[in-house]
Amino acid sequence: MEVLTGTTIDAAGPALVRNVTQASAVMRAMAGHVVGNGQRRAELDEADRVIGWLFSLAAYAVQEEQWQLLDKATRALCIWDGAFDNWRPVPDIRGWLRTLSGRSAVVTAAVLRDQPESARHFTALARDHDVHVDIRNAVDMPENGAGGSPPVQTRIVDRQPGQPSTSLPDAVRGQTLSRLYRQADRLDWTHMRPAARAELCNRWVRDPDIGGALLPYLGSEQRVRVWIKDSAMKDFPRAQEGQGPTANYPPRYFRGIEEIAEAACGSDGEIIPDSVAIKPNRFFATKGEKGYFVVWGSPRQFRDLMWATMHTAAESTEEPVIVMTTRRGDPVDPAARTEQEAMARRYGVRLVFLSRDLHPRSGARGDAM
């Protein structure tokens, strides 16, 4: 339990998505740990840690539209939440439930109906008409504690891969992303501290040209903030890499995976088609008869990259390579680099350091409605 909950969601999430059977077994095991080791009940601090990790995994599943994982993660989350009258995580979970729509709301509502001990913690949402109707019905508890009125049948519209995850008109979404990414680039979002990012997000919510443009479609400032923070800006680093559905909106971008492949494999390395993936950024490549598994990211992502590399290396014969990327001119921590090199050598992973430049993009999308 401690090992798993100590692993970041960006590292654990993709592995669980790739192996649904393993994910189901992991979630069942975590749910079974509510009673501790069979001799003692889990402590409150342990419950906090597990509930927080499962909550993050559920949010990840929504973001990636992985509905089976969402069901398993939310079910384990509700079992832990229902077993502890611990109100510390409830406000965060309640706020998240308010943001769910479409299939994510339907899947989560089905779990809540199965877990009334957890659902009773969120009865305040039953009369909140900003909340999806299935969620409201699932937490509408009469005096006997059972689920409330019968669930309303909800029509689910499946989205195709790469399609926007909100109901925003394309023109509004495009212009808003363009404005956000221009400001994020100018203010150096990547290197901002969390407090500064939070303040900037608040300014964007209040900005008539950003939050004001989104509000008629998203319905509340809270949903506007969630869309900016957890959708648009979470995609920003990937977009600068030329990846993801918002890749055409940043005003500047890195050269792309070709420079990563060159750093990892040499100038004649070839990326295997359809092997490029994210979270973490990775691909398979060949050079002659030799194969490579390449992951890349910033120095602060090193442990997650190492975890992903070791997980894949155990199941493949390709040489594992981690490419640590920095923007030219960024400060380098010599002690951290020495530690990273030592860990890579210990586990047989080749470590490459690459300093890159951002290049202006001509004709970035979203400048006009």
Rank of each mutant, 00 (worst) to 15 (best):
D367H: 15
V172E: 07
P251C: 03
V349A: 08
I93F: 11
N37M: 09
T108H: 02
E46H: 13
A109E: 01
P273S: 05
T312C: 03
M27G: 04
A58C: 08
V224P: 01
L69I: 05
F353T: 05
L112H: 02
E43K: 11
E289H: 14
W96H: 06
I51D: 02
G13H: 08
D304I: 04
D130F: 12
M192E: 04
A261L: 00
P169L: 04
R252G: 02
L54A: 03
L4Q: 00
V295R: 01
T176V: 15
V295M: 07
R206S: 15
I9P: 01
T5V: 15
E319P: 03
S101C: 10
P334C: 04
M233R: 03
D330V: 09
K290G: 01
E341P: 06
E270L: 10
W67M: 07
E241N: 05
A25V: 11
Q222R: 04
A146C: 11
T309W: 10
D333L: 03
M141I: 09
G162I: 00
V133T: 08
I228M: 01
V62Y: 00
G13A: 12
Y217D: 01
R182F: 09
T21L: 15
V20A: 15
G288F: 06
D209P: 09
H33S: 14
G52C: 09
D357I: 07
T154S: 14
N19F: 11
W87D: 15
L100Q: 09
A213W: 06
A76L: 02
I257A: 09
A73P: 04
L97D: 08
M141R: 14
R197I: 00
A263N: 06
F293V: 03
I135E: 06
V50I: 14
A11Q: 06
E318L: 02
D188N: 13
L354H: 05
N281I: 10
